[in-house]
Amino acid sequence: MAGITPSKHHETPFKRNWLVTALWVLVAVYLVYSFQAMGVSWTRFSEGLGHAGQLFERMFPPNFSRWELLLSGLAESLEIAIIASVSGIVLSLFFGLFAARNLMPDWVTVPMRGFIALCRTFHPVIIAILFVKSVGFGALAGILTLVVASIGFIAKLFAEAIEEISLKQVEAIRATGAGFVSLILFSVMPQVFSRFIGFSTYQLDSNLRNSTMVGIVGAGGLGGTLFSAFQRFDYDFVAAILITIIALIMFGEFLSNIVRRIFR
């Protein structure tokens, strides 16, 4: 290894990934196309920025003088979130169990999985619209919406968690002559309980967020208050509502962290 002669063929250590490069070109072409197709232009954007300044000027200081209205909306949002979460989680427990392929026969799991997937496909707002049309304005539509949304999300996760359990313990309990209910309670539940708590707190959190939004289409809660404030150009009240929503969501995150720590 005396004289190391550098090879004439100089190779860069950083190889170009042609797939990624092609992707960037595609993105650039798409950007040009979409800006033209949708009529998004710089003048409109800069014009909007002026409006934004005006809007923020009118938003500050936030107006909390109608705190009673704010509080009643907040209470309704909380009520919707709590009722929907509890009933959604209880229903999801059963649905998740029926959708678990290692415990149930195919003729139960296949329709169950289809139903859960259907609950998940539509955005909560669309479900909320349908419920508002069928059960009228108010909290009931909001509750039903969030129940459907909860089933779509956590029933699937429940089913997946149950499918991952060790069947040895199930067999052991079955060997004692336990019935189906005891089998679920003493062999399946202990294995998945802490994960269920995790999913449930997550869902409570997400229901809390969504309960402030379904009101926009008339399904009760703080969203309705927000939407009407927007329509009345009551921007200082809008700012107050937004601050309340953000505080509520941060409080919800804080609470679910505590619950998760307790059940770890």
């Binding site: 409006h51 809007l55 402030t212 939004m213 926009i216 927000l226 939407f227 929503i245 941060m250």
Partner: peptide
């Protein structure tokens, strides 16, 4: 924390 619909309301008011 702010839902996309609420963001949309804000941006509709602006743009």
């Amino acid at each position: 924390s702010v839902n996309s619909l609420v963001w949309a309301l804000l941006f509709v008011a602006i743009f």
